[in-house]
Design a protein around this nucleic acid. Structure first.
Lengths: 245, 245
DNA sequence: CGTTCATTTGAGCCGACTCAAAATGGGTGG
DNA sequence: CCACCCATTTTGAGTCGGCTCAAATGAACG
């Protein structure tokens, strides 16, 4: 297991202050003035770790804390009446989990680890106290929610307008960009999710996802070996998947 | 124009306090304690009116205020690089507009009136001041954003999983339910949007939307006359469109 | 009453799904 | 280290739903 070493986000030491965290430029405190960042930092519970497959939050459960992934990746999904999974998206380091819980104080979807994963926690009690006196944090949390909303809408638009290849291309381009923002390679990465997960996320079947990848491979846009992806022509993917003004 | 009289939400008198507003049980102040509601009310600019087709907010424009529709309905959309509209959804009375603007302080999509429409406005300056001292309002705004996010995700799931008839059924069931919550008839209503708008919202063509409606009519679930809809078997629509736990 | 736009209906085609089988790779135990 | 086993992924053949293009009908407005 230690030889894989390809998991998303470095295997960070368990306890690090935000100041020394590799995610500093991306994570919540990034846009906060110094004192606010310090106040927030004091409320953060760090270094929780879980194994692949473990569920971080469950639908219906009260939202007791704001969770932010530190390393590893996770799958956000909900289960339909018929028992099938709807995959809403994938969570990368520095991203918050379960924001839609603000709606009712309870989570409405499940989030489970795809790899060994570590995360930070801000208990809601403390968060609310902090929101009382930190205007920057207020703005930051609103920004976070607004961003999530914007992203969800953008994604919906993608589903509505693109065909299978377009969706897969967009998925790869988006993932690539998010990895780059975390200082990881945008062209060489290992998918932590299965074809079936990708398919359920994009509203396709796993065969169709596989075929799309094969097409890209044949066209010379990608190298694909199981879950290892090398992007050879990012522009081509972006052109197919892009589409938004 | 006055003889149509079918527009969504009554033609409210221009200036009404929140206390006397027909939307009181749905709108923002509904969940606020008395003093907070009063404080918010003092910041609200009421009774702005626009004609059909007028754009309320434009993509790229700074988010200068929080807008809530009072009467009438609107279309949220964005324009892709190719010049086609992506319809994100439709706004009913009591619903806020442009929440995704919290992401960057600028709107990312356009909202334009589908009927004569009136709305209320809370300037962002004042809103931020209020958020400083009203914990209930803080929670309420977060709830609003969380709800919008949850809804966007649910919709994405619907797109990913349902076929054409399922999407149209879900659209009607959702609209019906939202109208009911506003004290309007859930079974008799007039669509304020075109088939093309519905189609672009659901990721279909207008012909397919029309065919789905015709099918429902043939099965005896609906009566359809142009944009006037009578729902005869709500359960049937809900069964087709539902699907989420 | 005529014009114009929105909606409905029809025919044919293409892409994505379904079902089925082969191949690949990762992990395990000898 | 190698052979085996299992799950995942790839590939193939055939079907069906939704798209495209085109025409007809219906509604709204001057």
């Amino acid at each position: 297991m230690s030889s894989r070493g390809q998991q998303i986000g470095s295997a960070a030491p368990v306890c690090v202050s935000c100041r020394d965290c590799a995610l500093k430029p991306i994570c919540l405190p990034a846009h906060l003035p110094g004192e606010e960042a310090r106040a927030l930092e004091a409320a953060v519970e760090r270094g929780r770790q879980v194994l692949p497959g473990v569920t971080l939050v469950r639908a219906g459960e009260p939202m007791a804390a704001l969770l932010v992934v530190r390393s590893g990746s996770a799958k956000r999904y909900s289960v339909t009446l018929e028992g099938t999974e709807q995959v809403h998206g994938f969570v990368l380091p520095g991203e918050a989990v379960g924001l839609e819980g603000f709606a009712s104080g309870r989570y409405t979807c499940e989030v489970s680890a795809l790899e060994p994963l570590s995360y930070c926690r801000v208990p809601m009690r403390k968060l609310e106290q902090l929101l009382e006196r930190l205007p920057g944090l207020r703005r930051e949390i609103l920004r976070l929610l607004g961003q999530a909303l914007d992203e969800a809408q953008r994604l919906r638009g993608e589903l509505a307008q693109s065909d299978a290849r377009g969706r897969v291309a967009h998925f790869l381009a988006d993932l690539s960009e998010r990895l780059a923002r975390r200082g990881l390679s945008p062209t060489e990465f290992r998918l932590s999710m299965s074809r079936a997960d990708i398919a359920r996320h994009l509203g396709l079947t796993l065969e169709t996802v596989s075929r799309a990848l094969s097409t890209f491979k044949r066209e010379g846009w990608l190298r694909v070996r199981a879950r290892d992806i090398s992007v050879l022509r990012p522009e081509a993917l972006a052109a197919l998947g892009g589409g938004c003004a």
